[in-house]
Amino acid sequence: MSEGLNYTFLIDTFFVALSGVPITLFVTIVALLVALPLGFLLALTRINQVPVLNWFSRIYVSFVRGTPIIIQIFIVYASVPLILSLFFNRYNININVYDINPIWYAFIVFSFSTTAILIEVFRSALSTVNKGQLEAAQSVGLSNFQAYRRIIIPQALVVAMPNICTATVNLIKATSLGYAMSLQEITLKAKVAANAGYNYVEAYIDIFLVYIILCSLVEYGFKLYEKRLRRYKYASA
């Protein structure tokens, strides 16, 4: 390593790392597609103090926020095959659990953790929207659903957007732990490329750059979207 950086490797591996981006984004998007609606619904159970679900959400959120995501991955990766094989055995389904594509585990883990994060995000956003807004909506004859759909959610979304952005960036970063499930994402791909010639410094510089580019773009995208949301907010005021 003392002979300096291997620049050809640095450049080649950059593209290897880049080739992991689609998997990373795929996992991120699936996790968000699950977590956004589910997180919102569970946030409503917290706000409205729905008996059992409220408690469930609290413990769930506390667990996810209280434990490192790598350990959540360990647990899912160790327990889901167990449960599945038990299930498959009982119903005589002939699938080997170890043939399952690791991306399914990634979907489970990251949806699981992102949902919890978004419950908190939506809960605090919803609680900032004045209670009077709901009452006013109802007073002009909107149903509960309409009131949420047309009055509450648009306002809460503006408040929640920066936190959703943070959650998304954290999610993308967390997918770098997909190596623990042999997920072929950015980090693992570049690392494998480095194994052959021990070019670890170069590989990690590439990984580092890819994440910075990816996250900066996501942050930038959210900023643009926030601007649009806000403009809509004021223009229609």
Binding site: M1, S2, G4, V169, K173, A174, S176, L177, T187, Y200, V201, Y204, I205, I207, F208, Y211, I212, L214, C215, S216, E219
Partner: peptide, 26 residues
């Protein structure tokens, strides 16, 4: 701050683990 916010911990960890000694070699 932006760079650090965008870097996964594990990537930073390995970057430091491999990078700092390599840099020190110089």
């Amino acid at each position: 701050t932006t760079i650090l916010r965008c870097t996964p911990s594990i990537v930073l960890l390995f970057l430091v683990y491999y990078g700092v000694p390599a840099l020190a070699d110089n």
